[in-house]
Computed example of a mutant assay.
Amino acid sequence: MVLETIDVAMPYYGDVGMMQQAVRSVIAQTDQNWRLIVTDDGSEPGVPEWFASLEDSRIDYQRNDHRLGVTKNYQKVLSLVENPLLVFMGGDDVMLPHYLATVRDCLREFPDAKIVQPGVQVIDTAGNPAMPFVDQVKRHLFAPKAQGRRLYGGEDLAVGLIRGNWLYFPSLAWRSDIAKKVGFPDDLDEVHDLAMVIDALCLHATMVVDDTVCFRYRRHAVSHSSAAATSGRRFVTERTYFTGMIERFEALGWHRAAAAARNHIGSRLHALTLVPKAVRRGDKGGVRNLTRHAFGNPRAH
């Protein structure tokens, strides 16, 4: 049987050493039927030369002519995808050797599924196992409790993700057709990962959730997303997104999902936990944004 090639799309910007570790983890896969697409949005010296030294025809490396930013770089790498299966891997994350084999096995068992969320180990900046508070909440409050490998979809999955996004986007494997159909929205930089999955669910896509740990997701103490969260900027975007989804869910007859979008409990809790940090930083605007998001009247949005 001929296996479908899996496109590993890496929209890269950041630490060179972590990126090289990420690339080596792809090369080390037990399933060698992959193609790696790297769109480099940085300007670090020596990176093009390092990729050239790998001498692997399966690796398509491109340095952007000018800085695109997060969303446009994701859009670019998606436009370069050619094969039926796809992973959007972070340039600082790590695949364990059996990652591709695991997601392929999930799709073999559930051939109609469009997305796979395998088991994930969270690591810190140094690469050590970690379980920050945000990930404890994901695991214990919002993620499905079923063990093994299960198929999810429809309003039930949408409700769970709107209440609290427990996915690890860089570890997701996609059918390329649905990923291209939904794409990355231009105006939702901080929440494009959730928006993309929810859009797929609205098109009746289903997701396999498997507890086989095969991917390491790096959680940084300081990052683009964490800085946006502490300032409250992320939650302004989230509130706009949730408000816009209420009408869409109602049109689908997904009234529980509409209620979840109106209340966005997990997003509110996340904002509340960041208020002390914003206070310590003396960020008055951040405190205002965070408290408004945490305690604002959902009916007013």
Rank of each mutant, 00 (worst) to 15 (best):
V2A: 10
L3P: 13
I6F: 01
V8K: 04
M10T: 01
Y12I: 02
Y12V: 01
Y12R: 09
Y13R: 12
Q20N: 08
A22D: 08
R24I: 03
S25R: 14
W34K: 10
L36K: 00
L36V: 08
L54P: 13
E55G: 04
D56Q: 12
D56R: 13
R58H: 08
I59F: 11
I59M: 12
H66G: 03
R67G: 05
V70F: 10
N73P: 03
S79I: 12
S79G: 09
V81L: 12
N83R: 14
P84S: 14
L85F: 05
L85G: 01
V87R: 00
D93Y: 08
V94N: 06
M95F: 15
L96E: 13
L96S: 07
H98I: 05
H98N: 15
Y99M: 06
Y99L: 08
L100R: 09
V103E: 04
C106V: 09
P111Q: 12
D112K: 15
A113G: 00
Q117V: 00
V120H: 02
Q121Y: 07
V122M: 13
D124S: 07
A126G: 11
G127Y: 10
N128D: 13
M131N: 10
K138D: 00
L141N: 11
A143Q: 09
P144Q: 09
P144G: 06
A146P: 04
Y152G: 03
G153M: 09
G153V: 09
G154Y: 13
E155H: 05
V159Y: 08
I162H: 00
G164H: 04
W166Q: 01
W166E: 00
P170I: 03
S176E: 07
D177N: 12
D177L: 10
D177T: 10
K181R: 15
H192V: 01
L194A: 06
M196N: 06
A200N: 03
H204S: 15
A205M: 09
T206F: 09
D210L: 09
F215L: 10
F215G: 01
R216I: 03
R219P: 00
R219V: 03
A221D: 15
S223P: 01
S223K: 12
A227W: 05
A229L: 04
T230G: 00
S231R: 06
G232D: 06
R234H: 08
T243V: 11
M245I: 04
R248F: 07
R248C: 10
R256N: 15
A258W: 07
A260M: 09
A261K: 05
R262S: 13
H264A: 13
H264D: 10
L272P: 10
V279W: 14
R281L: 15
D283G: 03
G285R: 15
V287T: 04
H293L: 02
G296V: 05
R299H: 10
H301G: 08
